[in-house]
Amino acid sequence: MEAGTGASAGGGAAPVRTHWRTRLSVYLNTNGRRLVLGVPYLWLLLFFLLPFAIVLKISFAEFAIGVPPYSDLLELTQDGYFRLTLALSNYAYLFDDPQYVIAYTNSLRIAAVSTAFALLVGFPMAYGIAKAPKGPRTILLFLVVLPFWTSFLIRVYAWIGILKSNGLLNNLLISLGIIDDPLVILGSDWGVYIGIVYSYLPFMVLPLYATLEKLDPSLLEAAHDLGCRPWKAFLTITLPLALPGIVAGSMLVFIPAVGEFVIPELLGGADTFMIGRVLWNEFFLNRDWPVASAVAMAMLILLVAPIMIFQHIQAKQADGEGAGR
């Protein structure tokens, strides 16, 4: 550190020691943008998008005994040509066997009914939280989110002890004299509804809260002022303006619910067949990877429309937030 040479801005440290840091910083400042985008982009391409291509490929393969248990689509034949075999049998199988069709319709029905229940329970909660004074509002929001941080599996498990035929709910109802014979909830569709609503309620409440909180209270006052009664004002003003939140929340419940495995497995009956469960069984019990892949592809096709709707709302909201700044 000679006098006079250290006059530059970073002049404290010796140049040798900062050498690699300087080079790194030059690299980051010039290529930072590419790096920031490139790393997550590549990761998602490789580990999220590519797998779907592989699932698609294997869904056209045939079951084979071996490791891995499926046939190759491309084969090098003796005379030097590649032979492409697309086995459509897996898909045909899905339509032929009524078990799959029932599983699909069951999944859609159960997911839809559960979403409706979640909306019914979640809307007043979100509405009440949005209307609450600032202090309680933070606490209530926190209480909505907290269960989400505790184990999903354990929260589903908690219901077994409650819903069993000799469980806490039936014991309570019988001791109160409301019913004489225990209700069969565990092992029926009702158990699955309760489980889905319970597990996914925060996902319904949060987007609803976000839209309701942004709702300008003077809009409702204006409606009242123009002669609109509260209930009608709710229908003509609050509900339409909360629609993005309703759709987003419903999608967040509906889509994962269609493919739900744990809840029907633990709370549903042996006959509560949902696609997630069928896929699991094909894979783990029958070890039929091609059919499992075909089941997955069929489920994805069912879910494409809801997922697109969800993404559209996400993008629109992100744009709205960006434009608001």
Partner: peptide, 18 residues
């Protein structure tokens, strides 16, 4: 408010955005 014969114009205008 909805039974009163008066109407109000709001500071924020409170126009229904939809």
């Amino acid at each position: 408010p909805y039974d009163r014969p008066v109407n109000m114009m709001f500071q924020s205008y409170a126009l229904f955005p939809h």
